[in-house]
Design a protein around this nucleic acid. Structure first.
Length: 156
DNA sequence: GCCAACGTTGGC
DNA sequence: GCCAACGTTGGC
């Protein structure tokens, strides 16, 4: 079991969008960064838990939790010439880009802002804090638990 | 909307 | 294989 932080721009695909369509597939397309791709293709497994993060807004924030329900498979938008993120170097025989499917779990009672993450000494090693632009990031167990506690989630 | 950080591309 | 140019991300 591993923990992750997935970034999205809520104007593009928000946590509420995921909640509204819990059985949706192919939602997580368009990741075009090799490090993130490697996580999607090789490391992320069914049952892994995801912190859902909204970026590129006035107050960036972790809004909720999701669960991986399908492991890495080829990103169809890379193969579609009409898609925004089409990559001509990708092909069905040799797909370059991958995505996973996630399912809505729950919203954090108290969303955890980037500001509060940055000011927590327990979280200084997170890629998020080190100003990485990585859109798919691993999260340590202790970091995950810290953020859940900050978010007001009762740990069982 | 600005701009710093940083990943990618391509000329050499 | 270096590195300058360029494009994108994302906080502010």
């Amino acid at each position: 079991m591993n923990y992750w932080l997935f970034k999205t721009e809520p104007g593009c695909f928000s946590f509420d969008d995921l909640k509204a369509r819990p059985d949706m597939t192919e939602a997580w397309d368009g990741v075009r960064n090799f490090q993130a791709r490697n996580f999607l293709r090789d490391t992320i497994k069914v049952g892994d838990l995801v912190l859902f993060y909204h970026s590129n807004i006035p107050e960036p924030v972790v809004v909720g939790l999701a669960e991986v329900v399908r492991e890495g498979y080829p990103d169809s938008t890379a193969l579609d010439p009409h898609a925004e993120h089409f990559d001509p170097k990708s092909s069905p025989q040799n797909p370059i880009w991958f995505m996973v499917d996630v399912r809505y779990l729950e919203a954090l009672p108290k969303p955890v802002t980037l500001e509060s993450i940055k000011s927590n000494p327990l979280l200084t090693d997170m890629p998020l804090v080190k100003r990485s632009r990585l859109s798919i990031q691993p999260v340590a167990v202790a970091e995950y638990q810290t953020i859940l506690a900050m978010g007001g989630v009762e740990t069982r």
